[in-house]
């Protein structure tokens, strides 16, 4: 097992813990803002994991996917935050 394979396992476990925690907050989250925020975190972790996989396997196939995600990640959270009425508790 090479050095980068060991690193990829450790990093995968850490990314996984972060993603599971974000999903936990999406399910539990008391308000819709918490859910939007946790969705953003889940997306950021997905972008980071895509990049880590590219760096470990030395290819650039999913670089365009990262670009598109970074460009359009903003739409969901802003539309939720902008059009949330005061009485929407969850």
């Amino acid at each position: 097992m090479t050095f980068l394979e060991i690193v990829s396992i450790i990093a995968g476990v850490m990314f996984g813990i972060g993603a599971i925690a974000a999903v936990f907050r999406i399910i539990r989250g008391p308000s819709i803002l918490d859910r939007a925020l946790a969705t953003d975190v889940l997306l950021a972790i997905a972008i980071c994991a895509l990049g880590a996989e590219m760096a470990i396997n030395t290819h650039t196939d999913t670089l365009v996917v990262m670009l598109v995600l970074a460009m359009f990640a903003v739409v969901g959270s802003i539309s939720i935050a902008r059009f949330m009425a005061k009485q929407d508790a969850s």
């Binding site: 690193v7 990314f15 972060g18 925690a21 975190v41 880590a52």
Partner: peptide, 26 residues
Amino acid sequence: AVALLILVSAFLSMAAGIGIVRFPDV
């Protein structure tokens, strides 16, 4: 260098996940 940078990113992702579970408000 690549391993260190990836581990920093993975640690920050894990810290963010734990943070949004443990912290009290938005």
